[in-house]
Nucleic acid binder design. Structure first.
Lengths: 335, 335
DNA sequence: CCTTGTCCATAAATGCTTTCATATTTTTTC
DNA sequence: GAAAAAATATGAAAGCATTTATGGACAAGG
């Protein structure tokens, strides 16, 4: 069933059918209804490929993320997909892993498939060395690129992020204010945000004149879901002389690792060890005691990002960079 | 840059360029190289829409799931996407929620977009009343439909699932064998699998001649991530007279709710309360004690499912229904 | 009678694949 | 070694199913 069949059965030209389909105003009410009736009767739906060819778009957005099964990224994808669909766009999902080559080839694939825009979910897409960000600059020459939780200064690239620096700074100050001065920052280097958070922590500690020489930080190197490995690494760190009564973790997984470490070493939380996480994921409410965590309001970020993309695609101006502030959700793991 | 430009610059016809592009053998080595050089020089990539129009496919698969941020579903999507991409297919993601109307319209949308196949991730897509499954039967007339963790007998519909009945039956027997006879089945009705599990539990209990009249079951009605609400409901149930020393939960979230309930009521696990979950998600290793859980080997299921779909699309025969067995991962919450 | 505006059809454009026919090369045969 | 047969390489042109620019017909208004 093609537009020709419909035009024939309705006794009009294919142009008129197309006008009806696309809601053009230049069709009389009578003709429109006649065409609609035929369309309905034969359950005709226009061929998406031909349509794509004619319009040079199929209203699809490419979503790239390293690992869609990560709690945080999965939530982001969920919010973004929902909002895109509501705006009439489909999403092509691309899980790239953390390897640059794969990211580049996925990017090219999406562009070849003629998506209308690309969303990079997660700060791991931005590299310190700007040469490595070439693939993003290049892609942005073809289609708008949106960055969630990362920023890049480039034409046709738009960044929406939460102010990681500020919230970690604030969190560190709060922990210091609660009387803890020997704080360990436990992190996982992969991300751009992770680095922001680390420097916020360092700055906050130094700002308070604390332990100038040996501020404690520990980089976790294992699988990002392996809670036991995290606890193990903390135990080893402690046994090799690390002394701390507070842990600020760069995500909630790591914070759970800290809780496990405390349990295994008989430390009471928060009396003997304070723990603070990041992302306020569902993990924060499924441990005991419940986890104090920084909430960056992911749903808001995602909605804004998607909205901005749709604005760009409609030819409207949007800011290059939008920053929202997070807040600390106080629960049982801190004093 | 179109195929015409390339053909002109290479001094051949567009048919030849097309043959080179599609790896047809009927091109001489010399000509092929000449064309490839021009393609490379101008960084030409064929227009995907025109290609789709000619071939009537763009090598994309529609993935539908209720909620891509659910731990289990997110993992499944991750495995499936990865395998599809390796096979040269893209994935369009559709998060439908749990509402039938939305599922139907998403399904239609995917078919309109001319996907090559549809994967339904999660057993909530199958309804007890087969009339409600009409949308699947209909879709299967257009493209192959794959079901993960559910089964439906219909042409062009293929089911891959784990044997929920068997593993829950086995789990129940094990708990009984450990000396616990008053077991509560704590579940969440949404899914087809959930029901299989429930009936396995009931059959196992009855088979052991236990509590014929009042086998304990409790349906959880809150948000599927709200651990506190689960604990609360269990506390209420217990206070209103429910007596149990074991809980079998239909997923790991609910099992965490059970652990929280135990903690709030001062019950030691597993001495005073045994807890068993389902899905062996990462939650199982992030609580204390770690959760005994049924593992259905999701990665295997997803790989098989994706493989089967690609086989079908290549015109090969595959079984209508494939069942794998799960296994119980014993950890600290059971004796 | 001329203008203006509404409605609709014709035809061109979109960029590829593929069939069919033809030209060219290679192989076979005597 | 030449003619015939077979295999291989290439081009022309017809799809594929839309959108949209152009222009014609007709009606109403001045």
């Amino acid at each position: 069933m093609t537009i020709y069949d419909i035009s024939e059965k309705a006794g009009v030209s294919i142009a008129t059918v197309s006008r009806v389909l696309n809601g053009s105003s230049n069709v009389s009410g009578k003709t429109r209804q006649k065409v609609l009736d035929v369309i309905e009767k034969y359950e005709y739906t226009p061929n998406a490929f031909a349509r794509g060819l004619g319009l040079n778009t199929m209203k699809t957005i490419g979503i790239m993320c390293a690992d869609s099964s990560d709690l945080y990224l999965a939530k982001a994808i969920y919010y973004i997909e929902r909002k895109l669909r509501a705006g009439g766009y489909d999403s092509i999902l691309c899980c790239t892993g953390y390897n640059l080559e794969t990211k580049i080839s996925s990017m090219n694939l999406l562009i070849t498939k003629k998506v209308d825009g690309i969303i990079l979910v997660g700060s791991n897409f931005i590299y310190e060395n700007d040469k490595d960000n070439k693939y993003i600059h290049d892609a942005a020459m073809q289609v708008p690129v949106m960055l969630l939780n990362a920023a890049l200064d480039s034409p046709n690239v738009f960044s929406i992020l939460s102010d990681d620096y500020a919230s970690t700074y604030e969190a560190t100050l709060q922990m210091i204010a609660s009387g803890i001065t020997d704080i360990l920052y436990f992190y996982n280097s992969r991300t751009y945000s992770g680095k922001k958070r680390l420097s916020a922590f360092l700055d906050a500690m130094r700002g308070q004149g604390l332990a100038n020489e040996d501020i404690l930080t520990l980089l976790y190197r294992g699988s990002h879901e392996d809670i036991s490995a995290m606890a193990k690494q903390l135990t080893a760190f402690s046994q090799s002389g690390g002394v701390f009564h507070g842990i600020i973790a760069s995500d909630d997984y790591l914070a759970l690792g800290a809780i496990k470490y405390a349990r295994e070493n008989g430390l009471r939380i928060p009396e003997e060890l304070s723990v603070l996480g990041h992302n306020n994921s569902m993990l924060a409410t499924c441990c005991d005691p419940e986890l104090t965590s920084v909430d960056d309001n992911l749903e808001l970020l995602c909605n804004q990002l998607t909205h901005a993309l749709m604005e760009v695609l409609s030819g409207n101006e949007v800011p290059q960079k939008t920053v929202f502030s997070g807040k600390i959700i106080k629960r049982g793991t801190t004093r």
